[in-house]
Structures are given as C-alpha cells and as structure tokens.
Design a protein around this nucleic acid. Structure first.
Lengths: 367, 367
DNA sequence: CTGTTAGCGCCTTCAG
DNA sequence: CTGAAGGCGCTAACAG
C-alpha cells in the first residue's frame, strides 16, 4: 500500500490579500492570556462547576477576545477522545445515491426536503454519487467524521455499502439508514408500498375493472406493490391470478421506450381483455399512455391507466394533471430520513409512511 | 463561550450484529507485527527510498494484512502536519447554495454536472444550504477539512461567506469559487452574460424590432445582460435609450406573479409601442407570455418574447419548446466550478463560458 | 478548586 | 538504513 502525498497548494497571496492573518487559537493561548493552566481553560469552557466562577468568567472573556473556535481543533479532540472510546458529533450526515436519481422530480423532492431538514438543524450533508464504479466509502465516512449514512440505491449497491462499512473499524462505524430497500442491521425509511398496491387495485376494482395488467419490476420494491394488489383482490375474495397479470420488463433492453413497448405487448398478448394498466411509475405511465394510443387503446376511453409516485404530471387539455396515481410522501420521506440520521439511533429503526390515492382523469369504469 | 457536549450514541449491538469488530489499525500495530519502529513503517508506506527494499515489502504486506487504511487516521496526520505548516487534501469540496435554487431546472442542471465531475475524481461534496438565517460556515470548512468552497448566491450572502471565511485561521482557510457573481479575492466561474444581452438584442434587431422592453433586476447579474443589450445597440450606431426600455421589478412585492404583472404594466406604460419583451429568465418568460395575452398582446402575433437560460421550455401546440432564448452552458458551468475547486488554485482565476442563441417560435418580425 | 501528566496517531528532526 | 524523541491540541486521570 502507498500513502499518496496529495498536497494542497498553500494559500497564496491572492487569497491573503485583504484577509487577516488569523492564527489558530488553542486552549494554551487562552491559558497564557489568563494565567492559568490549559486544563483549567478546558474545564471552564465546558462549564465544569468545579472551576471558580470568576476564573470561568475571565477565561470565557479571553476565549471570546482571541476568537477561540472549538470547531477548529475538532481533529485533536477526536484523537484524544478515541482514548476513552467516546465519539463526538460532527453535525454531518453522509448521503449516498446513484447518478440516475439526480435527474427527475422523484429524487429531487426527497433530496430538497432532506437538505432542508439537515440545514435547519445546522447539520451538513456529505454527498456522494455512489455507483458500482465508485464502490468505496468517502474518506470522511471511513474516518468516522459523519454521524450517520443515508443511502438510496438498489439492493446490490446497498449491499456493497454495507460490506464497505463492515470494513471500517468498529469505533468509527456509523449507523446506516436506507430508503425504500430494507437491509439487515440498517434503519429503514420507506413508504407503505404494499398499501400503494392495495389502494390502486381497490380503486380500479371499485370502478368495475376485472382484468388488470401491471409491470412487476420497474421501481423500488415493485414486488411489494404487486403483493399489495394481490392482497386487495384476496381481501375481496377474488382470485389474484385471474384478475391481475404482472410481467417483468426485460432489463437487457437498454432503450427505455423499447423496453416499455416490449413488456406492454407481452402484457396485452397475455391479457387481451385487460381494461386497466397499473404503471409502476408516473414517468412510465406517460409513455405507456402514448404506446397504448398507438395500439388502438386510447386512455381513458378504451383503457384506464394509473401511475405511481405522483411525481410527474401528465398535462391534459386544460393544462392540469390528468394522471390518476398513488402519492408518495416524498418530502416527508426526506425529512424522516434526515431526522433519523441526525438521531443516529444505536438500534436500527423502521419508519413506514402512508401513501394516498389521487383519482384523476385517466381512470374510469370500463366500457 | 461554551463547548457543548454533543455526544453520539455508541454503536449498539444492533449494528454490531454480524459486523466484524475491526479495531483501528495504526502504524504501531504494523511495526509490532514486522518488528521495526513505527517511523520505519511510516517511511516504508510513503515509499521512502532510504528504507531497505525487503523491509518495505514486509511492511507493506503487514499493512495489507492488518487492513491499514491511512484515511482512518487523517485527523492525527493533519494535527501533526500543522506543526510544519503543511496541508493535505481531503478530497472534499464544500458547496454552499440557497434553498430557492434547489427547485427548478436551472440549479439542478449545474448541480448534477458538478456532482458528477466531483465524483468522477473521487472527491466528495459537503453540501450546505446557505441562507441569511444560517450564516455560519460548516464546521468542516472552519476546520480546514475541505479543499475549496464553491458558493452560488447573491452578492450579500457571498459577502457574508467571505467575512466568515476571513475569520477562519489563515492556515485553515481555503480558496473560494463563486458562480456568476464576481467577488474580490475569489475565483469566478460564469457565463458571458454580456454576450447573452448582445445576442438577444441582435436577434430582435435583425427581426426588425425597434422598441424593446426588459426587466433589469431579476436574475444573476442582470445588469451585465442589459449592458450587453445596450452595447449591441451602440455597436449598430443606435441610441440605447431610445430602443431599449429597462425597468426594475419591485422586490417588495412578495408574490412573483403580481411582481411580474406590476413591472410589465409599468413597462407597457413607458413604451406602449414596444414590440418585443426580453425576459431575464425562462420561468418569467412563461408567465409574461400569459400576462401579455391577458393584456391583449398575444405572443408572438402582437409581441415577440425572448427568455434567457434556456432551462424551462414553453410547450407549444406540438409539445415542443417554442420559447426563443439564450442557452447558458449550465452543465459546463458546474463542471468547470468542480474542476477549479479541485485544483484549489492559490491565485484567484476567472472562467467565462460562451452562451448561444436559440431561435424558436416566440420571436418573429413585428407586424 | 487547580496543576501535572500521559497519550490519542502521526510526521519530522536528530542520532546513530 | 533505522530508532528515538518531541510535539500538533485535546481530554481524562491523578495529584495536590
């Protein structure tokens, strides 16, 4: 192994111009100024009641005067605390996510509320795009500089994160919080996707649909959603296998448009009498809508269509969104993940948030 | 001053379950294993040629075997290096931005390419939402943990950042890179907004427009854009004051819709014979379009309209974008900011990227 | 109530 | 070519 020397250029005159040459203030400096020992300074600044009130006062004043900032010497503090096994919060949460999620409203809505919750508490976010190409953990995480990790990704990548995390020394290891995908030993923040399946199925059944098709593998935990669909059928005493046809899209087809067309054609072949399509995501719903029209099944006249997530509106003639969908509480998911991360609970916890049905114009009784 | 004890819960059994109890490996551990002094280990791992080749080999093997990770003990290294005034890169870039920018395509496009460039180089991003409500610098920045800061904000907030930065001890202070807004002593990455003004004005003049109205204070550095407009007129030997009417919107009006309506009414009153409107942003353009229609001046029949930024499409009847605009290289801006930050140049540098005209359907010759 | 000491892990200088 | 010692700034245990 090789420790690469990766030096930073020293702050040059360009930045020094007009900038004060503030030195690094240490406890010793304050001690010298007040005329006490540095450990007394340490105790005074921590509010140790054993220090005489007057001394504490003088020390605090000196610290303020010198501009002492405990944050500056966090490194030394962490080093020292390691001796006794204590860990101090750095007010920093790591967030790992794949590149693909940076595009699209889905992730953005969670991300923004996550950032807001973090910033509100005066924490910071260590963001890293985490792909299989970059499987390593950020140095700050390895160093134990973060209070917790939040990871949003597919199971395989999450497993890689856990493996990497297992390799960091136990005292520096921090809790992991995943979004949507449960991982053993990690906290989980998710939406009730089973309920999402039940609600969408209930809506279509209430409208009178009896042959419904869906794609089983497109979004996070699609299987949970499909299970919910089947559970709703079962709860009504109906045969899931008869009323719901779920097929998987072929992930080997790189082009999304083609992939959707291919699975749609298979679905329609398997259930030519289907009257409703459950799309696993709004984005896909929009595309399915066009594909269905091309196949002589315009939505909603000849086919009802439901999205999921309620993130990407399908504008109708009036400009408003016409897509019936299941709304996920994305903002709340981001917030809950942030709050859980800042709590950094010693024991893994699971938070499941409710979803809600949004009935709009793409669903109607079958003709 | 008070150093608040902000302890983290120790990693509990929940996380330890199935997790190896990896200890923190230090140079001393390797030294013990190989039977040499820890300073020899240090030298060997750094590739110091003075160490005997065989010894180096054995030390490296031992390090690998124990799973030594230099990142784990960065804190101690930084502490020690402080003695000699050296600074080591943490592969970490701070990014400060206001909440408002997290919504909308404008920021997102820059942000994603910024993150991608950073991640590609195996760096990380320390993200903080920086508002006037949270004027302090992240502890990691104060501690000198980042290699550079990138800040995207309005001049007042940027000034606050510089003030806060001036207060951090000189050896821990890192270079600042701003986007769009030049600050003395900081690097700048921006688009050629003067050119944006010239190009949009040139386009309208070429179409035959002679009375053009615009808003002077809505986007970043609007004044530069307006100056460009005037420069184009001057370059053609035309009187800027006669052909261009620029007014400021009233920032005290909280509702954006109302604010735009108010300035539009003033503009139309000041130049009733105007045939074209230059909107400072695409988002505003979309709203101006509706406001103009309401005022009996439909775009483009009775009024030509240009956006700026080319971020928010205005869908036409065919679904495609119909808004003529000036495209800013937002992805490139993000990338350049990232690269500049990772270079962390000692001397401030300025990067100005070109913009380009996008002619679409909202501009046509005056009738 | 306050001072002294040792040590967290590393790097560097000085000895040998 | 390798070892020993000192110190970065902090905290905690031990003296007084």
């Amino acid at each position: 192994m090789m420790i690469t020397a990766n030096r930073l250029p020293a702050s040059g005159p360009g930045y020094a111009a007009g900038m004060p040459n503030t030195p690094v203030v240490t406890l010793q400096h304050i001690a010298d100024l007040v005329g006490v020992h540095k450990s007394t300074v340490h105790r005074a600044l921590r509010g140790d009641p054993r220090v005489e009130a007057g001394t504490t006062e003088r020390i605090r004043a000196a610290a303020a005067q010198l501009g002492y900032d405990p944050a500056v010497n966090q490194g030394a503090r962490a080093l020292s605390l390691r001796k006794t096994g204590k860990v101090e919060s750095n007010q920093l949460i790591a967030l790992l996510f794949p590149v693909v999620f940076t595009r699209g409203a889905y992730f953005q809505r969670m991300y923004v509320s996550f950032m807001e919750a973090i910033s509100l508490a005066r924490y910071d976010v260590l963001a890293r795009i985490h792909d299989t190409a970059v499987p390593s953990l950020p140095p700050s995480v390895v160093r134990g500089d973060v209070d917790a990790l939040v990871a949003l990704n597919h199971p395989k990548e999450l497993a890689a994160v856990q493996t990497a995390l297992a390799a960091v020394p136990a005292p520096l290891r921090r809790p992991l919080i995943t979004l949507f995908t449960p991982m053993p030993g990690a906290s989980l923040v998710t939406a009730d996707l089973h309920q999402a399946g039940r609600l969408s199925m209930a809506h279509l059944l209430d409208l009178g649909h009896r042959r419904i098709i869906t794609v089983a593998n497109m979004a996070f935990r699609s299987e949970e959603r499909v299970e919910g669909c089947r559970a709703e059928l079962a709860a009504r005493g109906m045969d899931p296998d008869r009323h719901l046809v779920a097929l998987e899209s072929d992930k080997r087809i790189p082009d999304e448009e083609q992939r959707l067309a291919e699975v749609l054609d298979r679905l329609l072949a398997a259930a030519p009498d289907a009257t409703a399509l459950l799309a696993p995501q709004d984005q896909a719903a929009q595309k399915f809508m066009r594909l269905l029209a091309e196949r002589g099944r315009p939505v909603p006249e000849r086919m009802s269509l439901m999205g999921c997530d309620d993130t990407d509106p399908v504008p109708g003639p009036g400009g408003g969104n016409i897509l019936s969908s299941i709304a996920l509480p994305l903002e709340q998911l981001g917030r809950e993940a942030a709050n859980l991360a800042m709590e950094a609970p010693a024991e893994p916890r699971t938070i499941v948030l409710p979803v809600s049905l949004r009935v709009r114009a793409t669903t109607r009784p079958p003709t």
